[in-house]
């Protein structure tokens, strides 16, 4: 009987270990804090106001994240079709407002990258949710491929624009349920030394 109990005990511990390892492996598909965020080029915003917001020139062509005139860039990666991304739109707007108003500490700007969405779909999403920050359609799927398979949820990354690396300061996978967008931003600012 004792042997069976011990066997069960060891099995349970092993299962817990494997479960945790499995979760970590699944999360590993997305870039994590301290890693580089892929900087693959995005189309210059069509709206002059958005160019001005990001400190980019107006016109055709692409820009790199490092071209944005800011110390920190918050990137929301989402899909306009996903329900959680739709429900998270107010949280993203709140984070954008906080980013814009954090000027005393550091210049922070926010953008969105919409995986698998067309320009029309991005425009519809922005119109429906009054999205206050520039959002870019990942038309050719380059970010989708670089960031790995994603399953119906928004992800937020705060990046320090430090040249080639664009180091990820803080991440949030999914909706802000256990902490606020403000706490996310404060953590990122703190990690950047602001």
């Amino acid at each position: 009987m004792r042997a069976i109990r011990t066997l069960f005990f060891c099995g349970l511990i092993a299962c817990l270990g494997m479960g945790c390892a499995g979760s970590a492996w699944l999360l590993k598909a997305e870039p994590d804090r301290g890693e580089s965020f892929p900087d693959l080029g995005l189309p210059l915003p069509k709206e002059v106001a958005e160019c001005a917001e990001l400190g980019l020139p107006a016109g055709e062509g692409e820009f790199r994240l490092g071209d944005i005139a800011a110390d920190i860039v918050v990137v929301e990666v989402f899909d306009m079709y996903c329900r959680y991304c739709q429900e998270g739109a107010p949280q993203a707007a709140e984070l954008s407002a906080l980013s814009s108003s954090s000027g005393k500490k550091a210049k922070v700007r926010m953008i969105g990258i919409a995986l698998g969405n067309s320009d029309y779909e991005v425009a519809l999403f922005k119109s429906k949710h009054n999205t206050p920050f520039p959002v870019f359609a990942d038309n050719d799927g380059r970010y989708h491929r670089a960031l790995g398979a994603r399953i119906g949820r928004p992800s937020f990354y705060a990046l320090r624009l430090d040249g080639e690396r664009n180091t990820i300061l803080e991440t949030q996978s999914g909706l802000f349920t256990e902490r606020s967008p403000g706490a996310f931003l404060e953590r990122a600012l703190g990690r950047a030394g602001f």
Binding site: T6, F9, L12, L16, I151, G152, R153
Partner: peptide, 27 residues
């Protein structure tokens, strides 16, 4: 010791399951 560890393990599993379900849902 086994009883305590098993109890803690059960609580951990329950908490992880509930927190996961909060957003997991459909996906």
């Amino acid at each position: 010791l086994e009883t305590r560890v098993l109890t803690v393990a059960a609580i951990v599993v329950a908490v992880l399951s509930i927190s996961g379900m909060a957003e997991a849902g459909l996906r």
